[in-house]
């Protein structure tokens, strides 16, 4: 027997499967099922921890064959440089094709205009939908988890989108057993969320157990930040300190990666995945509540953006 190319847990003979084993098996099942039924799948890859775990599971699902679909990055132009570097290195290692949908291109040629507040998360929708249409992608993998937010808690693993990319919460297909229905009409596509049943704690437990590499900003580092809306924002090209704000150097890490202008850091000395896992276990704030300004706008913020075809 050869050494395993990817570390994994082995089958217990007497005891029940562990939580991570059950979740891993379910995600792999979803990948295999939807990739087999789809014509041109694509995986949304942001370099964030959920998309990294998703890619890791995809690699396991088809091993020793390579992942049989490309990845798509919706590039806001407000990326952390560490994340872009990580993205490029990862796709090279896995021998997969990278497609990029650039928000900056849309701003440059006038198809989109910058928002007054300068944030770009909301601007990702149009480039994403255009990339799906141009790539004729019928199965689109996303790393959303149902524990993230109340609207996501109601979304299916297989989520049908019309040609405008919209999610209709009133018209979802019932999802029974592990029988997934990916059928759709021309112009429609399905979003597939293989991590639906994972929690933030599961993700970090799995990253720790499997030794999965993440962009370095997930771990403690020193950074010049300002305090805004109760979060630490990195000072740089996309965030300038306002008059009443003082720039401070703090030891921080990020819990999500996104648009640099509205993704906040938390103060933390956690330097390894195991440290982060220990922090997550005792955390008293949900990850979105803590660090994403765009979800705080209204109680229904996420639902509205999902209806518009956001991830």
């Amino acid at each position: 027997m050869r050494d395993p190319p990817v570390s994994t847990t082995t089958a217990p003979t007497e005891t029940a499967l562990t939580q991570l084993q059950r979740l891993e098996a379910e995600s792999i099942h979803i990948f295999r099922e939807t990739a087999a039924e789809g014509e041109r799948p694509v995986l949304l890859f942001s370099g964030g921890k959920d998309s990294v775990v998703m890619l890791h599971l995809a690699a396991k699902a088809f091993w020793p064959a390579p992942i049989p679909f490309p990845v798509l990055h919706v590039d806001t132009g407000h990326n952390f440089p560490e994340v872009l570097e990580f993205r490029d290195r990862t796709v090279e290692q896995l021998h997969i094709r990278l497609e990029v949908a650039s928000v900056q291109d849309y701003l440059d040629d006038g198809r989109l205009t910058e928002r007054p507040d300068g944030t770009r998360n909301q601007l990702q929708t149009v480039p994403l939908l255009d990339a799906i249409t141009e790539g004729r992608h019928d199965v689109v993998y996303g790393g959303a988890r149902r524990d993230e937010e109340k609207a996501r808690a109601k979304e299916r693993i297989i989520s049908l989108r019309d040609e405008f990319g919209q999610w209709d919460p009133r018209n979802q297909r019932p999802e029974l057993w592990s029988l997934y229905n990916t059928r759709h009409r021309p112009g429609e596509h399905v979003r597939v969320f293989p991590l639906s049943n994972w929690t933030e704690l599961d993700i970090w437990s799995y990253i720790t157990e499997q030794g999965i590499e993440l962009p370095s900003l997930y771990y403690a580092h020193e950074r010049d930040v300002v305090s805004r809306d109760g979060m630490w924002l990195a000072v740089g090209e996309h965030v300038s300190p306002r008059e009443d704000e003082t720039v401070q150097t703090r030891t921080v890490r990020y819990r999500t990666v996104g648009d640099m202008s509205c993704t906040g850091a938390v103060e933390s000395p956690a330097a390894t995945a195991a440290d982060v896992l220990a922090e997550v276990r005792t955390s008293t704030l949900t990850e979105r509540g803590a660090t994403r300004a765009d979800d705080r706008v209204s109680e229904a913020a996420m639902e509205d953006r999902k209806r518009e075809g956001y991830f």
Partner: peptide
Amino acid sequence: VAGAPAEHAV
């Protein structure tokens, strides 16, 4: 099993 050899699976 999930990309690594095993003697047994359930």
